[in-house]
């Protein structure tokens, strides 16, 4: 009975250590990604694509969607005022 308990404890400890290590690795990965994303503002010029018509078109599509949101927002404001 005591041996079984010891075995179980040992297994649980091993699993705990394994998960702890996995967690540390994931935290490290997340930190790397967070740092990389934070630094994006420093290199935003690298994402300028005005010389490429096909990418420009895609950007316009995105802008159009945003403009639509803004337009709806403005309409709501107008309605509220009246």
């Amino acid at each position: 009975m005591c041996d079984e308990k010891d075995d179980l404890n040992k297994k649980l400890t091993e699993k705990h250590l394994e998960l702890e290590e996995k967690m540390e690795n994931l935290e490290e990965s997340l930190k790397i990604w967070t740092d990389a994303i934070t630094e994006l503002s420093e290199i935003e010029d690298a994402f300028k694509t005005s010389e490429k018509p096909e990418m420009r078109a895609r950007r316009f599509w995105m802008l159009e969607r945003i403009l639509l949101n803004r337009f709806i927002l403005r309409l709501n404001i107008t309605q509220a005022k009246s």
């Binding site: 995105m62 802008l63 159009e64 945003i66 403009l67 803004r70």
Partner: peptide
């Protein structure tokens, strides 16, 4: 004309 909004929208996007 959307061009007047483009800059602002681009930064806010």
């Amino acid at each position: 004309c959307f061009s007047q909004f483009e800059l602002e929208l681009e930064s806010r996007s």
